[in-house]
């Protein structure tokens, strides 16, 4: 059965019939909020895009020259950029993907009349309230080679050595960091999916049940299509947030070991504020925007096509 759903992420519209002649009044009210946003957000952002085409550097008496696409040519030949870009993609896809399936599972459970549901609900919200820095510190305690929770747990279960240096080992660092990313991002995804699940009309389920559909069939043919706009919206947002994430990994590994967890944002931060290459870092930011927009365009187009089939 085909259910046609709305296009995703449509901005909410103001209720009709609110247009008035006295719009000057409205502008006056908007001004105090608009002014700081324009001065300290819109203009800097435009300036940041512009800096990506210059050789701007930190320090006094530095003259800035427009260099056109020189930064981008340099980026193309920068192996550190490519490795951070690759790590960024693995991280963003990995975290978004795992997080989505875990959150969908948890949201479905929370939507059932289970005991202890309140505890899971509360626990699922806690990571949201925690500063990313604290989440990083907490997981460093868990990943401690000797005294950490994880090493101990494995040791007590009789699984392997007890001194794996999870965050320091070349092969385990990135997966370990991805697990933390999943943990930290669970709340938003779960809450959004749960809200979506609660919006699925119960009548549809009942009708499908009367038709003899089992739980899995009902999930596939009723729940999932109804949930599709929500899924598209939250996975897109998660992907953007993850690709641009910084604080968590900065505290966990600072990009190490040997650059194995240097996400694009960490690379850009190092370029800008450790080496003072403002122009180059801004160029990297521009490249990231283009990449995100391109990936999202492909993803959204495909989902839209699925929805209208």
């Amino acid at each position: 059965m085909a259910i046609i759903t709305d296009a995703p992420a449509r901005p909410t519209q103001a209720p009709p019939g609110t247009r008035r002649r006295g719009n000057g009044y409205a502008y006056l009210l908007l001004l105090p909020a608009l002014l700081p946003v324009v001065l300290f957000s819109v203009i800097p952002l435009l300036n940041g895009i512009y800096l990506g085409f210059t050789d701007s550097r930190a320090g006094f008496n530095q003259t800035t020259h427009v260099t056109g696409f020189a930064n981008y040519a340099k980026l193309l030949h920068d192996s550190l950029f490519w490795s951070s870009f690759k790590i960024g993609l693995i991280w963003a896809f990995g975290v978004t993907f795992i997080q989505f399936f875990l959150a969908l599972g948890l949201a479905s459970l929370l939507n059932q009349p289970l005991r202890m549901r309140w505890l899971a609900r509360t626990l699922a919200l806690v990571p949201w309230a925690m500063p990313p820095v604290i989440v990083g510190i907490m997981w460093r305690l868990i990943y401690q080679p000797d005294a950490g929770l994880l090493s101990n747990l494995l040791y007590k279960l009789g699984l392997g050595e007890h001194s794996v240096n999870w965050l320091g080992d070349l092969s385990t660092a990135l997966p370990a960091v991805i697990v933390v990313g999943v943990w930290a991002g669970m709340p938003q995804t779960t809450v959004v999916l749960l809200a979506g699940l609660q919006g699925v009309p119960a009548e549809l389920h009942e009708a499908a049940a009367v038709d003899g559909a089992n739980a899995w069939r009902r999930f596939r043919s009723v729940t999932l299509p109804a949930l599709r706009p929500v899924i598209v919206a939250i996975t897109s947002l998660d992907f953007i947030w993850n690709f641009n994430s910084f604080g968590l990994v900065y505290v966990l590994t600072d990009g190490g070991p040997a650059g194995k967890t240097t996400l694009p944002m960490l690379f850009a931060y190092q370029q800008a504020f450790q080496y003072g290459h403002f122009g180059y870092a801004a160029a990297l930011g521009n490249a990231m925007v283009l990449i995100i927009v391109a990936l999202l365009a492909v993803y959204l187009r495909r989902r839209m096509r699925e929805a209208t089939q």
Binding site: R19, A26, I43, L45, G48, I49, S56, I240, A268, V289
Partner: peptide, 28 residues
């Protein structure tokens, strides 16, 4: 309470600004 063009521009800005990494904003 009012429908101004500025209002929809503001909401559009909120959505678009999500796309840009902090680094582009923080340097300027």
């Amino acid at each position: 309470r009012f429908r101004t063009r500025l209002g929809s521009v503001a909401i559009g800005w909120v959505l678009v600004s999500q796309l840009f990494p902090f680094i582009l904003l923080v340097i300027p």
